[in-house]
Amino acid sequence: MIHTPRRRYARRTAAAVTAVGLSLSAAACGGNLSSGGGGGGEDYPRGPIDLLVGQDPGGSTDLIARALAEGAQEPLGVAMPVINTPGANGALAAGELAGQEPDGQSLMVINASLIAITPLAVAGDEVVDLADFEVVTGISRDDYVLVTAASSDFDTLQDVVDDGDGIKYGTTGVGTGSQLAQELLFAQAEVEGTPVPFDGGSPTLVAVLGSQVDVGVVQIGEAMPQIEAGELTPLATFADERNQYLPDVPSATEEGYDVLVSQYRAVVAPGGTPQDTVESLRSAFGEVFASEAYQAFNEDNFYTPHETEPAQVAQEWGASLEDYRAMVEEYGIDMRGEG
């Protein structure tokens, strides 16, 4: 086809303008994207509910979210896809949730450590505040356990306290419960140790198993298979009472140390979500908690149910943050690592 240059130019411009115009008008309409809009109320839920997870697939938080999502589809009558948005221990996902409509169509499974421990280690403007969100329900508690290789010289917590000077202890990273628990414990027990941070629970576990470090703290679910196989010796747990799955292992408090560190998880919705929506969600999740499948899931993964009211979640986590802040100051612990 032969076009005169001027006509071709005019055509091009027209097409470009149309395209831009279309896009702009569509954008101006605000778009109507993926999991639909609309508020709560009588016809809630209006379609699939996104459940955000701030961790990688396959991890504990992710598995809990999937178990919940699987069970919640029946009482709610809609699908609940799990969307992984890993980063900064969940801060990225929290940020994304905050930007969603408070209509109950977006939820998140959030970790207590993000709220109560990470703020001790990061700059002020990165802190995630639970008050910005509506808590729907608490889910469960995942205890931490201090472990050592079966072949090591330590058999009990007292051994570590007595002979532990110069030990190397593995942590799952800066700003984690693993680090906090050990820092507090060793400060109170006056044991001189060197923290060796790893990237998460799995490498820490490997290091302890291989005796690369003397002791380490990981989540109980990660350590149980090794403990049951006799490869690891559990030394202490860090809840206020003994963990139901390790009845023979003392808690740190029992041994006289004021160290209460556990990982909790809760479901939150964007701030401003209407109360009746929150209530519908709570009762739906309540049904999931009561189901056999979910209870078996908890047992298989060594989680302790902690299905509390929203107010209690907020109070517990807020109190933890304050307590930790006070203790970290008292013992002069620098959560940002040595040097």
Binding site: L22, S23, A26, A27, G30, G31, L33, S34
Partner: peptide
């Protein structure tokens, strides 16, 4: 720039 507001189809 556009994907967040109008989805990926048009861009």
């Amino acid at each position: 720039a556009l994907i967040g507001t109008i989805g990926f189809e048009i861009p």
